[in-house]
């Protein structure tokens, strides 16, 4: 009886967990399904009409969509690069050095994450307007905002990876006559790299997906989420679902390749 109870207990929680996971995927299934929807025949854009490959063959058909995608990808890449470099440097300082103002810096990193997007977006807008830039909102102001909110997430991600690092590995390298520079590039950096990569991936997804902050500071520039928002008032073109599906599959592929690579490295190290 207790064994049966144990069996149920074990698998019940797992089954409930799987159900929650399934719930999280319902929208992704719908998005993938709708990417094959032929909406040309009907005005009802919120139900599946008939199957077609057209959306996948002509992804750039809706006016302005691929242009907005290009803008989002450019902003995402630049913001990720800047935020990852600045954030990684700061994370090293916060973990490895004891300096005056360290706890202030930790607080400064935490605050943007505890601020609702609408407040952060409106404060930036207030600054830009006060600085006389109210008429010059666009690519530059979006970029500033995106680097800002990515920065905190990079610091937090890299910091947690670094503080979990065994400093004996670095001491061992120094004992074997590696200088500081060699120790950093041959030992520390490779060990922290997965954390930096995760931070970069997170930054890009945050930047690519942001709407609330961008919408307040964008001027006439249209990013992909803003295109979707504008289109939602009239009826979203089905190609939006193609982009959503491609982004999802690409991210999944990057994570799986990274994970396979990491486990292969672990096996290689273990077999030595």
């Amino acid at each position: 009886m207790t064994r049966l109870g144990h069996w149920i207990g074990k698998h019940l929680v797992l089954a409930l967990g799987a159900l929650v996971l399934l719930y999280m995927y319902i929208p992704n299934f719908i998005v993938a399904l709708m990417s094959f929807n032929d909406a040309s025949a009907s005005r009802n854009l919120y139900s599946f009409q008939s199957f077609t490959w057209d959306n996948w063959l002509n992804p750039c058909e809706p006016l302005g969509m691929c242009e907005s995608l290009r803008v989002s990808i450019s902003i995402g890449l630049i913001a990720t690069l800047v935020a990852t470099v600045l954030g990684t440097l700061a994370a090293f300082a916060l973990v490895r050095h004891r300096f005056e103002g360290r706890s202030t810096m930790n607080l400064l990193v935490f605050l943007p994450m505890a601020t609702p997007e609408i407040v952060m977006g409106s404060s930036l807008l207030a600054l830009f307007v006060a600085a006389g830039m109210g008429g010059r909102l666009g690519f530059g102001t979006i970029l500033i905002a995106h680097i800002l909110f990515c920065l905190s997430f990079v610091v937090v991600t890299v910091r947690s990876r670094l503080s979990g690092l065994d400093s004996n590995l670095e001491k061992a390298a120094m004992d074997l006559y590696a200088n500081e520079w060699q120790t950093f590039w041959r030992v520390t950096f490779p060990l922290v790299f997965p954390g930096i990569l995760a931070a970069a991936l997170l930054s890009f997804s945050l930047s690519f997906d942001d709407f609330i902050i961008t919408n307040l500071n964008s001027g006439q520039t249209v990013t992909f989420p803003m295109f979707v928002w504008g289109a939602a008032q009239r009826g979203v073109p089905m190609q939006v679902n193609v982009i959503g599906t491609v982004m999802f599959l690409a991210a999944l592929a990057i994570v799986i390749i990274g994970e396979v690579g990491a486990s292969r490295r672990r096996k290689l190290l273990a077999s030595r």
């Binding site: 919120y46 709407f211 989420p225 999944l252």
Partner: peptide, 27 residues
């Protein structure tokens, strides 16, 4: 690890696009 990856992965389909799909589910 697989399940953890699956928790984060839906993030990458745009937030707005996923929210719009709830419109269809709840129609």
């Amino acid at each position: 690890t697989l399940m953890l990856v699956l928790v984060v992965a839906p993030f990458f389909t745009s937030f707005l696009v996923r929210t719009l799909s709830w419109k269809l589910i709840l129609a």
